[in-house]
Write a protein that binds this DNA or RNA. Structure first.
Length: 266
DNA sequence: ATGGTTGGTAGCCAA
């Protein structure tokens, strides 16, 4: 099974690039974030025509929005709300492969610009979201359950997940407080970072490059914000990963995030 | 130190 996660930054604007991803990389399951559309205007028909007949979507006007598209039959759609808001950041389902897998697709709040929850409500929201997950996973799920967690987590936890650890220590996405909380989430169930199973922690690796750069590839000031985690029972099934760096240059209008692919063998 | 771009939507807000 090939799984993909991608912050597509508007599924309607970038439908041609999504179809290109499907044609060129043939994922069985695709998890999207920032679809930015209500469910009525999600381009389901075009995806079904390409063989992605199963879809669970959870979107709203203008902001956020998550979706799971699949060639494999999906189980029931589950939607979760965090921080008392209904802002379309979490959708889950089950996959009929291997031992039967629960799949969670998440879009964690970006957190605004100022890394101080006292003056920046958006950063406070991000930290609260992480705090709720630190409680929720061990209360509601066992580490024995085969699960995959993917998404735009909006945090680059390792020093090699950013272009300059020193210069990003006070930049939202790499501050110690949020990195520590994400690490705590990871510890709740012993989540395994699938991509770092194949790319050593000494190696720089990014999945996002800002639009505010004259030449993203030349300056290469990226961050690894998009992640695929699995619970311990699935770790032996991990067969390989690809961060599709080339997609940052896809014409005519690339997303600022690139797809992350993970292959499983059962 | 600062500003830089993009998307959705029609105001700026969010990233």
């Amino acid at each position: 099974m090939r799984l993909c996660t991608w912050n597509i930054n508007s599924v309607r604007l970038r439908l041609p690039l999504l179809l290109r991803l499907l044609d060129e990389h043939a994922p069985d399951v695709v998890c999207l974030q920032e679809t930015k559309t209500v469910d009525d205007t999600f381009p389901l028909r075009e995806l079904a025509e390409r063989g992605y007949r199963f879809a669970h979507i959870h979107g709203m006007k203008s902001y956020n929005g998550v979706a799971i598209l699949s060639r494999l039959e999906l189980g029931a759609r589950e939607v979760r709300h965090w921080c008392g808001r209904e802002d379309c950041r979490h959708i889950a389902t089950t996959l009929p492969v291997g031992p039967g897998i629960e799949l969670h697709n998440l879009y964690i709040p970006a957190g605004g610009d100022v890394p101080d929850p006292a003056v920046n409500e958006k950063f406070a929201h991000k930290l609260q979201f992480l705090d709720e997950m630190i409680r929720w996973w061990p209360e509601q799920r066992s580490p024995d359950r085969p699960m995959i967690l993917v998404g735009d987590l909006n945090i680059a936890p390792l020093e090699t997940d950013v272009w300059s650890h020193r210069q990003l220590l006070d930049v939202v996405s790499h501050t110690p407080v949020e990195v520590e909380k994400l690490t705590q989430v990871q510890r709740t169930l012993g989540w395994v970072d699938a991509v770092r199973r194949f790319v050593p922690e000494t190696e720089k690796l990014y999945t996002w490059w800002s639009y505010r750069s004259a030449d993203w590839a030349a300056s290469d000031r990226g961050r690894r914000l998009d992640h695929v985690w699995v619970t311990p029972p699935l770790a032996p099934a991990l067969a390989g990963t690809t961060v599709l760096r080339e997609a940052r240059g896809w014409e005519p209008k690339p997303s600022d995030h690139v797809p992350v692919l993970v292959d499983f063998r059962f």
